[in-house]
Design a protein around this nucleic acid. Sequence first.
DNA 1: TCTTTTCCGATGCACTTGCATCATAACCGC
DNA 2: GCGGTTATGATGCAAGTGCATCGGAAAAGA
Lengths: 198, 198
Amino acid sequence: MPKQVDYEERRLRIAEAVCALVARSGMEAVSLRDVAAEADVSMGAVQRCFRTKEDMLLFALEHISQRVSERADQRIAATSTPQAATTLLSHTLAELALLDEESRAQAHVWLAFVGHAPTSERLAAVLHETYAKLHDLVVWLIGYGQDTQEFPPHLDAVQEAHTLLAVADGLTVHVLAGHHSPETASAVLQRHVDRLAR
Amino acid sequence: MPKQVDYEERRLRIAEAVCALVARSGMEAVSLRDVAAEADVSMGAVQRCFRTKEDMLLFALEHISQRVSERADQRIAATSTPQAATTLLSHTLAELALLDEESRAQAHVWLAFVGHAPTSERLAAVLHETYAKLHDLVVWLIGYGQDTQEFPPHLDAVQEAHTLLAVADGLTVHVLAGHHSPETASAVLQRHVDRLAR
DNA sequence: TCTTTTCCGATGCACTTGCATCATAACCGC
DNA sequence: GCGGTTATGATGCAAGTGCATCGGAAAAGA
């Protein structure tokens, strides 16, 4: 058997490089050469990992998409001490909204991809799927809050989830655009969730 | 006096071309040549109107930014028949959220620019200013609703405006990403406004 | 050690980009 | 008309792009 290489690891590494570049200087700054340099591999290696540039970008999106979902799931799973559903919901949403400073890069990447979704069919598909997953998550959280009687039972979980997700994404945009600081955005979110609990 | 040309008109025309291109095939598709072709002028003309490409894009952003604001203002000013503050607010927000199909292009452009805001100082400034203006507008609308006693007086107009703007922008993103149709997005918005009126 | 198979990375290539240049055309006051 | 001024658009140019190519390096089994 000839030389073998851990492609999965390299792909991830390249995806990280893509994110770093997008976050630092926008999406147009992502050229194969730049990515290769950032990931500290040769251009040939990048071309071997991904057939085209679009494939590479798509993989990067799926990567951060997955990371965001995972983080949210973990936060919920890690609730060993029985936490108030209210704070669980607001914290999860804050996570999804990528508000903290270190998520700023991911938010930047995310938005860049959304901006390109109308252009690329495949990209749109990934986004659609991710949003559906997140929506389900939020619906579940609201239901949980209703079980613990923190949220009134007459709430329409599906509708509320739509609104909550919209608020979260809107705040992501606002923070990125400089209209909000992460703190004020977080406060807005918190307030909205508290309101649900009446 | 030599040949004179209506620069303002040409600038607007070019700005429209930029928007059309961005909407059609994303922001990377905007090259000086493409813009010139789309606007049906020569490349030299474009270069005469705008010193650099960045200037051109910035002007295009300011253009649509202004158009959106104007449309919202007009909708309010045109309220000859005394309209319910509730519907006035929700319609205005729907307008701002660029939900209808023909605003899709503008939404696309807007988002593209937001995505580039962290990169460009000047771009961020324009966005910041616009958001501030919109916020003031929504605050005023809520206050108006309180005057007509449609909204409870204890509402914190500033905070509610923040949430409303976030919902609107979030929905813009969701529609663009294919997570919502304009109709469902509009319904979510409507629901949220109705909720304010208790 | 040698062979074989995979991987690497440098180079080439056709193309596009933003911007500069400049001869020419279009215009206005005279 | 005519001179002087300004706008125009074709062309040039260097830099950068994604992708294809390919000789040889590297590793694992013989």
